[in-house]
Structure formats: structure tokens, C-alpha cells
Design a protein around this nucleic acid. Structure first.
Length: 696
RNA sequence: GGGUGUUUAGCUCAGUUGGUAGAGCAUCUCGUUUACACCGAGAGGGUCGGGAGUUCAAGUCUCUCAACACCCACCA
């Protein structure tokens, strides 16, 4: 077929992809050694962004490369239900039509979410197709599919029975806007200019103690003042009582090493129900825990009436005003401090005393740490192992319950006296309850759902239909490599390793390739508010998938963020064009595009030379692929194709097409070598290579 | 407070075990009667962030300082 003047990528990409998909060539072809990658599931309602384009390009390169080597390859695709994010989107939509989820009720709301999922859920998969991602779509999974939901229940019940999941009343990070607990990882610490107020707590007519605080409003929940046991300044006050202003309560002055004589006034107010450190102090000294906030972080009925129902920041102002009037406000110091914000809601997080489900991550962390130490799982680049150890070795209990509606509802059922029964099904819970109470009782399921990352933690085996013993589970677990960005090492990578080690007795992937993030041309993070987002779909329309993929690959050097600008993509467009034109030229000169050639009988020097160069390149590429050095792969290919193959080889044979002695050999070797070039570029540039291969 | 990364040509970045500084883009010069101006040939351009050390030899190893970026921890 005569090649057109230009590669019509928009038309050909579409045709080629649907042909690939229809011919089932993305399904594992039985026979070879297994090679598998579990695709990090994007949010089901999401849209392809530049980070996706990068990570999925890398994965597709690896997948296509190993598929071409004849391995049995699985790229497991799917999407994540993304609890909070999705629920927020749907709630926002409801608000637009003046509805809210509470008036709708849980069941109706969840229906709405499923509707929304149905409406927008296919979008990201189709965008992945445009990128050329060769995943086996017939195996696509969603974290809330029946099978995966059953896996979630089974894991929960097993971990509960093993004492790793438990329910506890303790301080959690409470998001007063989303009205749910969130995990430590979902809290973002922001530097803020704040104040440290010095406040006088009277002891008797003459004496007082001055405490310093950044949160005066919480003094309504104070149950002690702490000083350091060795602090000479306050030694004689230990054991005495002071008067808590406004509340007018006697609270003890206690000795605790938490009080730092160097900070503030050296004496610190203790609010055990609203501060993580104070909570520990409260437990050590058996103090009273007074909860002064409701779920909206407004003051509740445990405070004097004039403060009730005030927002926490309003309360702060009023407290300060009152203290000032009482001449108890000594001074205000401005200082830099760090305030916790919810990463989704953007409001200040409140430590709040609630009942939540926790997972003992410490116990689960032991095996993954060992796996990395003995190299059964390797981070690439290696420096991430330190980050991993650092976090894993200091890991805190993981709060896994969320006060949301969209997600996996916790498989625990409560009897009339709040005794709970954990089991995979209601029937089983009823049996347990019957045994416990001696009669049938009505049970109600825990209303909370699990953290989104709980189900994603099971992704590597739940998608292979665990707990069923399937061919795929046996063949493809553990995966060869996990490809992801460093931003979800803790959220996701570490947790997959925990769950994988526990339930599969083996970490879920051998290599963990951590790629950098994509930034704009100035090195700034892309964000809506900065308006510097580069839309991959736009680039796909303008330059084609091959060019975008090659650009990303070429810019991808380890240890440095990718600075992307349209100019770079534009630059690599000419490379795509160069390949096309080389094909056109050889076609014009009647090269013979054969897939097989006998190398031994070749006599023309340039032919001998290019074959050797080609072999050398292949050897190098094999090694570089093992090391995940994608930028070097791209640059080697670029240099070979452009300068070695086109500038030298083609220029030489140009002069010899008429040479009787060599002409036939040149036609054969040039055709054959070009086919080899197409094979080399195919993992990175699947469309143009396939198009040329079919046309020539 | 703990940790990580980066600093090399105008720009974006390579530089494996220490052995004469590289690429792409940009700039300049010349060229194009058989692919491609999304082309070819060539040229200019760097005291490799500062300082010290090890060595016959340091962009590369050690120490130190600085700037920038990021991660973790801490609401007195």
C-alpha cells in the first residue's frame, strides 16, 4: 500500500486500536513465562491527566516489550471507587439541583453515585485506549465489583479474627466539613502564621500560673496544667490546683515530662479530648476527657451556655475577649506554626474522640520490611527504600473507618446492646448473635464504610479473583513490577505489600519502579488554581499518541521531575515524521520488507555495518530495559534511527541503488533492517510502527 | 527538628567502575537535479554551585558551605 505524505495519526490510531482489541491480542497468550503488571486503578470518575499519561506509557512500554519477547503477559486494568473524592463530586452535583445527600437518604444517594459512575466511568478507559494502552480490557475490574467486595469482607473478617483489626475509642483526625475521620496520611500540614497566647490561671488570691497556648478555645475542655517534674520554677506548684477561668473549675497542676520548660511559659494546659499529646498525658494521669466539640467542630453542651453552638474560631475570639476583660490575657506572640488541614476538604482538622475501626499496621509491616531487606521486593531507584523503611518502622495504627456512604460498608453487625458481630454475611452474624443472646435478635449493620485504600490494598490479588484459586492468581501473582509515583508509596504501595504478605505469603511485586512527577515547563506543580495544566488529550489530538509517548519516555530520567512543555512534544513530532519518511523512501525504492534474512552471505559493507549496529542496539536496549532507564532507551533509539540509520545508512545506499552488484542485496537488507527498526520502536510508538509494518 | 533530591553550554538535561567535558533545542555559516525545511553538512558556546581534601589524575570519591525543590514529624 502506497504510504501517504503524512502519517494520519488521528484516523490510524483509532482503527489500529480497535483492531488490536478485537483480535484479543492484549489477552495473555498462554505458553511463555509470566509477566504481569497491576495497573494502579485510576478514580472511576476521573479524567486522564499528564501523570496518568506518563505512568501508563511506561507500563505499556514494558508490557509490549515483554509481550514481543514471547512472554505470557497480563496487564490488569481497572478503576477505583475513590470514596471521598467520588462522594464529593456527586454531592456537589446534588447541591446544584438543590438536593443534599441527607435528605435523599443513604440508599437513594448510593443509587445516584452508581448512576454517575455509569455515566462517567468509561471515560478514563477510553482515554487510555487513545494513549495506546494495551491492557486486557476483558479482565477490567472495579473495586466495588461483587468479587472484589467479597474479598474486602473476607480480609476484614480474617484480620478481625486475628486481632489485627479492632474497634477503639480514641482521638482521630476529624474533618469537620466532610464529617468523617481520616487517616494521618490524608492530613496535610501547612505552615501558617499563628499566635501563641499567654494566659493566667489563678491559683489563689496571690498566686497564679501562666500557660501558653495556640488554641485558647480548647481551654473549656482543660482538665489539668502540666509542668516538667524537674522545672525549678514550678516545682512547688505540683499537686496544687488552679482555677480554670471562664469554666470556673479547679484543675490539678501535674508533673509530666511532656511539658517543655523551654517552650512557651513552661506550663502547658492539658486538653485530653482535643490534642494528641494531651490525650497521652491524660491517660498517664487518669484525667477526665471532656469533649467540647460536636461533629461540625462547634462547641457542644459541655461548655458554658454562652459558648454553645459557636464555631471553634468564633469561640476563640470570644474567649480571648473575655480573658482580656478579666485581665488574664498576658500577651500574644506571633509565631510560625503548622496547622493540619484535610487534603480533600481544605479545612482545619480537629482531633476528636470517636469510636473507629483500626488496623494494626505495625504487625502487618514486619514482612514487607523483611521482603525489601532481602531484595524480594526492590525499589528503583533504590533511595526510596529509606523512605519506605522510615515510614514503615514508625507506622501508627491505621484508621480504616470513614463516616461516608460510598464505599464498602463495614461487615460488622450490632445487637440491641451494641455488642457487635463481625462476619462476611448477615446470616452468619445472625447465627453468632443467636448463640450469644440465646434467641433471634434484630441486627443493624455498622454504618461506616472502609477507607478507599483498604480495597486498593488488595488490588494485586483481588483482581485475580482471590480467594478463588484461579489460573491467573497462580500464574500472575506476584507481579513483576509495580509502576507508580512516589506520592502514593505510603497510601498504596506499602499497604499492598502488607496485605499481600499477609494473605498471599509473598509481597505482590518484585520490582517497584518509582517514577518522577510531571511538572510544567518552569518546574511548577500543575494545578487548576495555577492554570498551568497541560491536558494530555489536547496533546494527543495535536501530535498523536506516539509522539506524546516518545516525548514522555525521553524526558524520563530518574531522580528528576519531568518538566514538560508543548515545545518538547513538538520537537519529537519531527522524529515521528522522520520515521514515516524513511519508510516512504524505502518503499519508493522498492526495498523488500522481509522478516527473515540470511546474514552470512552479505557482502556489501554498509549492510554488514548496519546489521552489526542494530544488534548492538538491541543488546543495549535489553540491558537498559532491565534497569528501567527509559530516557536512555529513548535517546539511544532516537540517535540510532535518525543519525545512524537515516543520515548514514540510507544516504550510503542511496548512492548504490543502481549498483548491479549490490542492488538486490541492498533492497533486501534495507527492508529487513527497517522492519527491525519498527520492532524496536514499537513498545514506545505502537501506532506508527504497526501502520508502517502493515503497509510495507 | 529528621530525611531525600537537585545545582554541568543561552534553555532542557545526559555523563555507567575517577582517565582529554556530551546530546537535543536555540544561535551562526554553508548546502539540498531520488524520503523528510518536521532536511543535510559544519561552527561557536562550559574555570561542571562555592571552598577544602584524597589521587599521577576529580563533573565523578570524602568533608564543608550555599541556593532551590520535596517528604516525614511537631498545633504550648
Amino acid at each position: 500500500m502506497q504510504l501517504d505524505k503524512f502519517f494520519d495519526f488521528l484516523k490510524d490510531e483509532k482503527n489500529l486500536y480497535s483492531q488490536w482489541e478485537q483480535s484479543n491480542c492484549f489477552k495473555p497468550q498462554k505458553g511463555g513465562e509470566p509477566y504481569s503488571i497491576m495497573m494502579p486503578p485510576p478514580n472511576v470518575t476521573g479524567s486522564l491527566h499528564m501523570g496518568h499519561a506518563l505512568t501508563f506509557t511506561i507500563q505499556d512500554i514494558l508490557i509490549r516489550y515483554h509481550r514481543m519477547k514471547g512472554m505470557e503477559v497480563l496487564w490488569q486494568a481497572g478503576t477505583d471507587h475513590a470514596g471521598i473524592a467520588t462522594q464529593m463530586v456527586v454531592e456537589r452535583k446534588l447541591n446544584e439541583s438543590n438536593l443534599d445527600r441527607r435528605s435523599l437518604g443513604r440508599e437513594k444517594f448510593i443509587e445516584k453515585v452508581w448512576e454517575w459512575k455509569k455515566e462517567s466511568g468509561g471515560q478514563i478507559s477510553n482515554q487510555l485506549r487513545r494513549l495506546g494502552a494495551s491492557t486486557d480490557w476483558s479482565r477490567e475490574r472495579f473495586t466495588m465489583d461483587e468479587g472484589l467486595s467479597n474479598a474486602v469482607k473476607k480480609v476484614f473478617v480474617n484480620l478481625f479474627n486475628d486481632g489485627i483489626i479492632y474497634k477503639d475509642k480514641r482521638l482521630v483526625n476529624w474533618d469537620p466539613k466532610l464529617l468523617t475521620a481520616i487517616s494521618d496520611l490524608e492530613v496535610e500540614q501547612r505552615d501558617t502564621e499563628g499566635s501563641l497566647w499567654h494566659i493566667e490561671y489563678p491559683i489563689d488570691e496571690k498566686n497564679h500560673i501562666i500557660i501558653a497556648t495556640t488554641r485558647p478555645e480548647t481551654m473549656l475542655g482543660d482538665t489539668a496544667v502540666a509542668v516538667h517534674p524537674d522545672d525549678e520554677k514550678y516545682k512547688n506548684l505540683i499537686g496544687k490546683f488552679c482555677n480554670l477561668p471562664i469554666s470556673n473549675k479547679k484543675i490539678p497542676i501535674i508533673a509530666d515530662e511532656y511539658a517543655d520548660p523551654e517552650k512557651g511559659s513552661g506550663a502547658v494546659k492539658i486538653t485530653p479530648a482535643h490534642d494528641f499529646n494531651d490525650f497521652e498525658v491524660g491517660k498517664r494521669h487518669d484525667l477526665e476527657f471532656i469533649n467540647i466539640f460536636d461533629e461540625n467542630a462547634k462547641l457542644n453542651s459541655n461548655v458554658p451556655e454562652e459558648f454553645q453552638n459557636l464555631d471553634r474560631f468564633e469561640a476563640r475570639k470570644l474567649i480571648l475577649k473575655k480573658l482580656d476583660e478579666m485581665n488574664l490575657l498576658i500577651k500574644e506572640e506571633k509565631q510560625q506554626m503548622v496547622i493540619p488541614y484535610g487534603d480533600r476538604s481544605g479545612v482545619v482538622i480537629e482531633p476528636w474522640l470517636t469510636d473507629q475501626w483500626f488496623c494494626d499496621a505495625k504487625k502487618l509491616s514486619v514482612d514487607p520490611i523483611l521482603a525489601v531487606k532481602d531484595n524480594s521486593s526492590k525499589f528503583i531507584p533504590k533511595q526510596w527504600e529509606n523512605t519506605f523503611y522510615n515510614w514503615m518502622e514508625n507506622i501508627q495504627p491505621w484508621c480504616i473507618s470513614r463516616q461516608l456512604w460510598w464505599g464498602h460498608q463495614i461487615p460488622a453487625w450490632y445487637g440491641p446492646d451494641n455488642k457487635y458481630f463481625v462476619s462476611e454475611t448477615l446470616e452468619e452474624a445472625q447465627n453468632q448473635a443467636k448463640e450469644f443472646y440465646g434467641k433471634d435478635v434484630e441486627l443493624r449493620q455498622d454504618e461506616d464504610v472502609l477507607d478507599t485504600w483498604f480495597s486498593s490494598a488488595l488490588w494485586t490479588f483481588s483482581t485475580l479473583d482471590w480467594p478463588n484459586k484461579t489460573y491467573e492468581l497462580d500464574k500472575f501473582y506476584p507481579g513483576n513490577v509495580l509502576v507508580t509515583g512516589f506520592d502514593i508509596i505510603f497510601f498504596w504501595v506499602a499497604r499492598m505489600m502488607m496485605m499481600g504478605s499477609y494473605f498471599m505469603k509473598e509481597t505482590p511485586f518484585k520490582d517497584i519502579y518509582i517514577h518522577p512527577l510531571i511538572r510544567d515547563e518552569k518546574g511548577q506543580k500543575m494545578s487548576k488554581s495555577k492554570g498551568n495544566i497541560i491536558d494530555p488529550l489536547e496533546l494527543l489530538d495535536k501530535y498523536g499518541a506516539d509522539t506524546l509517548r516518545f516525548t514522555l519516555t525521553a524526558l524520563l530520567n530518574p531522580g528528576r521531575d519531568v518538566k514538560l512543555s508543548e515545545a518538547r512534544v513538538k520537537g519529537y513530532k519531527s522524529f515521528t515524521n522522520k520515521i514515516w519518511n524513511a519508510g516512504k523512501f524505502l518503499q519508493l525504492n522498492n526495498s523488500i520488507f522481509i522478516d527473515d534474512i540470511s546474514i552470512d552471505s552479505i557482502i556489501f559493507d554498509a549492510n554488514k555495518w548496519i546489521i552489526k549496529e542494530l544488534n548492538d542496539l538491541n543488546t543495549q536496549l535489553d540491558q537498559l530495559t532491565k534497569k528501567y532507564l527509559f530516557h536512555e532507551i529513548a535517546n539511544k533509539i532516537y540517535h540510532f534511527v535518525w543519525h545512524t540509520y537515516c543520515d548514514w545508512y540510507i544516504e550510503i545506499i542511496k548512492q548504490n541503488f543502481e549498483n548491479e552488484k549490490f542492488a538486490y542485496e541492498i533492497k533486501k537488507v534495507s527492508g529487513w533492517t527497517f522492519i527491525q527498526v519498527l520492532k524496536i520502536i514499537h513498545p514506545i510508538m505502537p501506532f506508527i510502527s504497526e501502520k508502517l509494518w502493515r503497509s510495507l
